[in-house]
Design a protein around this nucleic acid. Structure first.
Lengths: 150, 150
DNA sequence: ACGATATTGAGAATCTTTCTCATATATAGT
DNA sequence: ACTATATATGAGAAAGATTCTCAATATCGT
């Protein structure tokens, strides 16, 4: 299990930004912290709320795409097509997602290494039969989350 | 390998719509054909073009969400958050996607049954360790497609 | 053919995300 | 610390995709 300490991440994000000659300003620090706090792919609106709506949406979006370019976060889209932002795997560890079909929330899961190895084999098998040069994979398990089953 | 004949699909779509008391009108037939023709998750714009821009976008979108509700197609979103529509698996057969990270195009792949079985085990393993009641899974292999490697 | 019901098309409205630009802030050199 | 320069911010405008509205049309059963 990867340990995610806020201080740790702060430091690693700071370093990565420095490598890209990008300043780690107050607003960017707050945004990084919100990403840690929300644990799991979060929408811009959720991050905005988490930040007490103090960081304007335009700045938030700018920071998020900056983080994207620097490889600090990864952007996906939920079933409604709304963007969700999550810290990249080199910060959080490789993982997959459990997606609730009712409320749309997404939870992270890590797999045992031997399961992950099987998976890698399968992905290789998929790519081998095609023209594609595979660089990664993404597995979402869809279902209904605990809260939505009540 | 599932055979996808246009006539076949037309007939099955007609039946499914009838069950839902929804008429299979000209515009809807054209839309279903465009979905068959484009083979792979297509954007509304691509479908619109495929139809020679004769079917207005508002009607197209309406038909697509109607098909969604009737379980005729499935909506996903590409890396840019743009919706992509594809015929459902009971029409096309169970399959997965190869996604090109450069041009964004998506290609369908079917897996050998024993690979698919392994996969099912893994998905079960993922869900078992959680509060989720799993209902499906989704695997995308990300890479660079043939055309984009040139 | 008639009346009731469902569907269509055109444009307006909505929502998320990106862009613009004037203002403010940080940095490096002196 | 001061200035010059580059970088970052905030507010609102703009863009793009999708959904909504409503009057006009087409379809179905009788």
């Amino acid at each position: 299990m990867t340990t995610v300490s806020r201080a740790d991440i702060d430091e690693r994000v700071a370093q990565r930004l420095a490598e890209h000659d990008i300043r780690y300003t107050v607003g960017r620090k707050l945004t990084a912290r919100a990403l840690v706090a929300l644990a799991g792919p979060a929408t811009a609106a959720q991050l905005h709320d988490e930040l007490g709506r103090e960081v304007p949406l335009s700045s938030l979006y700018r920071t998020l795409s900056l983080f994207d370019e620097a490889g600090i976060n990864e952007r996906t889209h939920d079933a409604d097509g709304v963007a969700r932002y999550e810290l990249a795997e080199w910060l959080l560890g490789h993982h997959h997602h459990l997606v609730c079909n009712k409320c749309g929330e997404v939870e992270d899961v890590e797999l045992a290494t031997e399961v992950e190895a099987q998976l890698a084999d399968i992905v290789r098998a998929i790519a081998d039969g095609s023209e594609y040069h595979a660089t990664g994979h993404r597995i979402d398990v869809e279902g209904v989350c605990g809260s939505c089953r009540d």
